[in-house]
Nucleic acid binder design. Sequence first.
DNA 1: AATTGGCGCAACCGCCACGTG
DNA 2: CCACGTGGCGGTTGCGCCAAT
Length: 219
Amino acid sequence: MEAENEYKKGLWTKEEDRVLLDYVTVHGSGRWNRIPKLTGLKRNGKSCRLRWINYLNPNVKRGDFSEEEEDLIIRLHNLLGNRWSLIAGRVPGRTDNQVKNYWNSHLCKKLGFKKQTPKALSSSSETPKAPDSNSKQSCSCGTSNSVKDMEALQNDQNPLLDDIVAAENSNSNEEIQWMTEHCADSLSCSNGHNLISWGMVEFLQGYPLDLLYQNFESS
DNA sequence: AATTGGCGCAACCGCCACGTG
DNA sequence: CCACGTGGCGGTTGCGCCAAT
């Protein structure tokens, strides 16, 4: 790309934000690589996309994470590992970047997890990048007492977790009811919050029903 | 008051998947 | 079937703020 070096890096200015916002308002999100050409913005498409998703998008919730959000993230992480986009998809108003940052800076510490440093990775015999995209789920953190009740559900080899990825096909109301009845206990919060009321249904909608039966009835 | 170290967050990087011609 | 462009994802970096000394 000949213009690669012309692209600016670093923090975004208010003016750049305004230009990007104007573009998205008129053209909608997508076609990010056209933005520098159409608007004269000295940012590459990727940077524009990220800025929109993580900051400018009005659906993004700012500010501290609530207790409910925190608990949901902990539980989803236990199920899904470091699949931040999947986790963020179940936490309304939060982006994968927010969730990832929050996990690494707050929750790892709070739960007594050891954050895997680049040094630790390089000294490890394992390669930091898995060849298989499925094994991108490299959970760098262990388990803790506060999430011990989830251990029964956690199984890295369990194909069930991978099927959550294909969660966009929604289930019928009866299926959701069955799932909430059978899974809510297993996933219920230690602090008494009701997951059903703040995202559990949406979360469960992603579960393939046959795998749910298999997983929960046999346990 | 100046310095330093830690922390949190925004942004970048590299890889991969998918769509299209 | 293949090459290319684009978008998405997770890991990582770097900067600014703030508390501790």
